[in-house]
Design a protein around this nucleic acid. Structure first.
Lengths: 144, 144
DNA sequence: TAAAATTAGTTGCTAATGCAACTATTGCTA
DNA sequence: TAGCAATAGTTGCATTAGCAACTAATTTTA
């Protein structure tokens, strides 16, 4: 790998792309009055798939800090989309679950998300997706 | 593009990779007592390259909101790494410039950044870099 | 079994993000 | 030229991020 290559700002491009996607998603949520943020959506998506998990597990699944998860969940509880339920076996643990309202929110928002993913990937191939995944995974693994 | 493909969480992977990189950079800055954040570095890097620019131009160059730039600059001014200088021609404009201390900071931190980029890309080829750039640019352009 | 270490989660703090609303200045236009 | 629109930047607000320090509960170990 040459020096000119190394000096190229890939971090910046990653950051810029992600910000653009995040912004597009948020604007679409807002325009459709979904009353939800992008990261709140990510948590709801994972809670829908995994039914009943703890803050810690949700943090691992979403690559978020547990403090961040804790605070986003706080907001979702206030919106009555999530309930917390202490574990009787291990009283340190708190299980999280979508409420019926939370499940409805998931089903309501999901089509929008699929549409936006389609938009982002239009003109690109499955091979492109494989390549992106491979390269990002490699970078991820390279970092100590 | 198939539906299974579209439902794959590329946003999440981008987010996770970027967070990992950012975290690695910040920890390296901290371990070497550089007293700087990743985004503060990005602004310093751009100010070093462009010498004398406004908040607006810096925002465009870094893909940041102008309010974000304004506040990060505030911190850099407090650290005496940047000076603000009003334009006599257009009194709305404020030009930004690195102080000598700011230039020194750039030269001091830059080797660390080059090293970290090398680490992130180890085992990958220039073609991989080209592919990543191409795919991210395509996604960026796809977003309305 | 008592003490120490680990684990789950919360709270305080600082920073980055982006929208809306605001001030100040400049440019445009009727 | 008076008035309106556009531009540059700041401030207020809510959200996400992550580290450190903390409480509470459980597990390990001496």
């Amino acid at each position: 790998m040459t020096d000119t290559f190394v000096s190229n700002p890939s971090f910046f491009k990653l950051d810029a792309t992600l910000k653009r996607i995040r912004n597009y998603w948020q604007k679409t949520f807002d325009a459709n009055k979904k009353d939800i943020t992008v990261d709140q959506w990510l948590l709801i998506e994972n809670l829908y798939k995994h039914k009943k998990i703890t803050h810690n597990e949700l943090a691992r699944l979403t690559s978020k800090d547990i403090t961040t998860v804790s605070r986003i969940i706080e907001l979702l509880v206030k919106k009555e989309l999530v309930v917390r339920e202490g574990s009787p076996q291990d009283r340190r643990k708190v299980y999280l679950q979508l409420t019926p309202k939370g499940s409805d929110k998931y089903k309501d928002v999901r089509p929008l998300v699929l549409d936006m993913r389609k938009t982002g990937w239009s003109g690109l191939t499955e091979h492109d997706y494989t390549e992106l995944t491979r390269i990002l995974d490699a970078i991820y693994q390279n970092i100590p």
